[in-house]
Nucleic acid binder design. Structure first.
Lengths: 114, 114
DNA sequence: ACACAATACCTAGAGAGCCTATGCTTTTAT
DNA sequence: ATAAAAGCATAGGCTCTCTAGGTATTGTGT
C-alpha cells in the first residue's frame, strides 16, 4: 500500500465505519482491513491521532468501556458519530467522488466513481 | 479540492500527461486542469518540485526550448518520459486501481475503479 | 509456570509532500 | 504605460503518515 495515497482518506474511512455503529480504534482498523480486502493496514500512529483529531473537531464523541469479561478486563475507547460527523462524512464522500472522477478524467478511461 | 487527497497522485498525473507526448510544467498543469474538468489545480509549489523529483528518479528527462516566436522568446523546459518512467506509470496506475477499489470496498457501494 | 502473540491504548520524532508567498523574466493585451 | 498572463524556481510552514517506543491485559502453546 502506498501510504501517500492514504493521506486524505483515513478520516473518511473512520467516519464511514462509525456510521454503521459505535466502535473502538483497534476494531475500526480491523474492519477497514477486512472491507478493503486487506489493502488498508491502518497503523496505530495514524489511526489514534486521526481519532483524536476527529474528536477535537466534534465529529466524534468517545466513551470508555472498562470491563468485558469477569473483573478487570480490557478497556476500550468507543467512538460515536455526532450529527456534525455524519454531515462531514457526507461531504467527504462527495469530495472523494469528485476526486476519483478527476483522476479518471486524466487517466482517460471514462470510468466514473460515485 | 482537498489537497490532502492529492498527495500520492500528482506524480501519476504528470507521468500520464507525458505519456501522451512531451510537455512543460505550465502546460502539464493546464492539461490536468482541463481533463479533470477543472478539479485539479496543480500549484506551482507542488508541480515543480514533483517534476524535479521525477527527474532525480530518472523517470523523466528535461530539455530546454529557448525561442518560439521571433527573437528572444519564452523559454520552456520540456519533459520526456524515460522507459523507466513508463514502467513507473504502469505501476502507479495499478496501485491507484487497488487503492480506489479498497476505498470502494469500505464505502460499501460495490463500485469498482480500474 | 513461562514465554509469546494478540488485544488495546498512546505519543514523540522523522520524513515526505502540498501550499502560500516570493522573486525573476518575457510576452501580450488594454 | 501598465497589467495580466506565461514560465520557471525555491524557502518555510503545515499537515499527515510511519516507525519505534512505552504501558497493560488476555489467551495460547509448551
Amino acid at each position: 500500500m502506498d501510504s501517500r495515497l492514504l493521506s486524505g482518506t483515513v478520516e473518511m474511512l473512520i467516519l464511514e465505519v462509525l456510521a454503521r455503529g459505535d466502535s473502538y480504534g483497534y476494531q475500526i482498523a480491523q474492519t477497514v482491513l477486512g472491507e478493503s480486502a486487506g489493502y488498508f493496514q491502518l497503523k496505530e500512529g495514524s489511526l489514534y491521532p486521526a481519532l483524536h483529531r476527529l474528536q477535537r473537531q466534534k465529529l466524534l464523541k468517545a466513551y470508555w468501556i472498562e470491563a468485558d469479561t469477569s473483573e478487570g478486563g480490557r478497556r476500550r475507547k468507543y467512538y460515536k458519530l455526532t450529527p456534525k460527523g455524519k454531515a462531514a462524512l457526507k461531504s467527504k464522500r462527495e469530495e472523494w467522488a469528485r476526486f476519483a472522477a478527476g483522476v479518471s478524467g486524466v487517466l482517460g478511461q471514462g470510468h466514473v466513481v460515485a
